[in-house]
Simulated assay, not measured.
Amino acid sequence: MSKTLHHVKITPHRSSARGHSNHGWLDTYHSFSFADWYNPNFTHFGSLRVLNEDRVKANSGFPMHPHRDFEIFSYILSGALTHSDSTMSKKQAEGGTQSELSCTVQRGDIQFTTAGRGVTHSEFNRGNETVHFLQIWAIPWRRGLTPRYHWGRYNDEDKRKGFVSLLSPLKGGVDASEAEEKAAEPTIPGTIAIHADFVMAAGIIQPGSKFEWAVGAKATESGKRKVYVHLPMTKGGKAKIRLDNREDAVLGEGDGAFVDGINAGDRLSVESVGEAEAEVIVLDTA
């Protein structure tokens, strides 16, 4: 097999190189430096700052804690996770409904928080089974944004047909007006708007099948891109993917890959070469 993107550098980031902590209630892997784990080789990639693969046991979770000046989002792989935050507490004071005071996201859902100038939130597993999810942080294009929360539900059947975009840049851009911020219109319809030159997508690829990711997703003015591909640990090690037809870019579960020197409009092939379907996460950043 021959690679098609000759100008592109692909560097696998093996699961064994990730940080790992097991706190009993939380079993977590860090693709980038986080908490007590620091590796100077893995600090960020473009605006991508954190990618944690977390499992939280039933009736446990993260109590209220503060964040600021990050875009923070979670993609649920299995189970359910209940989110509450300080923006919802303000709605409670105003007599908000229960659905406005917390939000429970399930398999395939994504939830998104702009921490901005300061937010406190909690993430709790109120179900009877372990929740497995990806927690991801991106660096926003400016500090001091107004905190906000959104969530979206995306169908697995759509993801089995091709990559489905989940997040895309706020249409108003870095200089968005207050009205544009409130409207929160994304560049790609049907996605959640993020304050960064950043697109997130997910696809579920059957063994022997191949998807292509259109770099930049026609949602950016930046020609030079960085793409991080992650294969979550969902199939007991039976899922594998190959990037750009390269034998040295075969990823197992828990592995990721830095795709550098790639351009908007390039098409990155992702082939499922394992025994089980592969749920692939693409993080495309300037």
Rank of each mutant, 00 (worst) to 15 (best):
R225S: 05
A183Y: 12
E185R: 10
L77F: 07
S102R: 12
N245M: 14
G254T: 00
D244N: 13
H20E: 11
T113K: 00
F112T: 03
R55V: 05
R68G: 14
P40G: 09
Q106F: 14
Y29R: 06
G61E: 11
P169S: 00
V164A: 10
L283D: 01
K224V: 10
I72V: 07
A286C: 15
D197H: 06
T28P: 09
L81A: 00
V229Y: 06
W213Q: 08
S99L: 13
D158M: 06
E94G: 12
P12C: 08
G236D: 09
A276P: 00
F211W: 02
T113H: 00
S99Y: 10
K159R: 07
P63S: 04
V174T: 13
G254V: 00
I10T: 07
P232N: 05
R143I: 13
L231Q: 01
H44R: 13
P186M: 15
E129H: 09
S47R: 07
V273D: 06
D266P: 01
W151N: 04
I281A: 09
P189M: 14
R68D: 14
E94L: 15
F133A: 09
M200S: 07
E180L: 09
T97Y: 14
G108Y: 01
G274H: 08
N128T: 15
L26N: 12
